[in-house]
Simulated scan of single mutants.
Amino acid sequence: MPRTVRIILFCLTFAALIGGGEAVVANTVTPFDRAVGTPRGQLHSPYADFAGVAQEGHKIYLSHDCNGCHGGGGGGGMAAPLTNEVWIYGDDDDTLFRVIALGTGSLSPNDAFQKQGFVRKGSENVVGPMPHFGEIFKTDDEIWKIIAWVRATICERHPAQC
């Protein structure tokens, strides 16, 4: 192989490794770390058109067995329903992301959720704590898509809330 071709291949390989390394470093922040490290009120969904990613969000919801506690359609079960008017801690993007990522009550590692000042705003028949999923979901995007599905489902069932 000519020397010029070897040099070009070496440079391309080296460039690919350097570029790939940056991508890996950028993705090492877990949703749990993001929720702990971001000031309260600053987490916002990137999906203004939540209906556009709702189906993908439902697939992620089902693939992580969220339906085992919240029901396949989000209507509840052994955990609170996701599709009614009662929101135990609030219904803004920031709060919903943190509930999923940090968990609540005794299932929130080192009381991460409570340390951020969250208190119950509503009540449900099911009052058990939510496990933290911020280290199970590998990207923030997975959580945002689940939240998009929840919002789309609420809009189908309660159009006045949308």
Rank of each mutant, 00 (worst) to 15 (best):
L82F: 02
P31H: 07
A112P: 05
V53T: 03
S123T: 11
F133I: 04
D93Y: 12
A160M: 03
E22C: 11
S45Y: 05
V24H: 09
G57F: 03
L82G: 00
T95C: 07
G20H: 13
A48L: 14
G68C: 12
H58V: 07
W149C: 04
A79R: 14
F133N: 01
G52Q: 12
R3Y: 13
T153P: 02
A15N: 04
F14N: 03
C162Q: 00
R157L: 03
C69I: 15
I18G: 05
G128N: 14
I7H: 12
T104N: 10
A112Q: 06
I18Y: 10
I18W: 11
W87A: 13
N67V: 10
S123N: 11
Y61K: 09
Q114P: 05
F137P: 04
G103S: 14
L62R: 04
Y47H: 01
D49R: 09
P81A: 07
D93K: 09
Y47K: 04
F137L: 09
I136A: 15
C66T: 06
I143P: 01
T28P: 05
G75N: 13
S63Q: 14
H132W: 12
L107K: 05
S123M: 11
V29S: 11
T13K: 10
E135L: 08
W144P: 02
G52T: 11
C69W: 15
D92I: 02
D65Y: 15
A160I: 00
Y47N: 00
A23T: 13
A160D: 01
G57N: 06
K59S: 13
H64A: 04
Q42L: 13
N110I: 14
K138D: 10
K59E: 14
G75S: 09
R6N: 14
V53F: 05
G20D: 13
F113K: 09
P46T: 03
E135Q: 12
G76F: 00
G52I: 05
A48E: 15
V150E: 03
P131L: 13
T13C: 11
S106E: 15
F14M: 12
H64L: 06
Y47G: 01
A15R: 03
A80R: 08
R157Q: 01
N110E: 15
R151M: 01
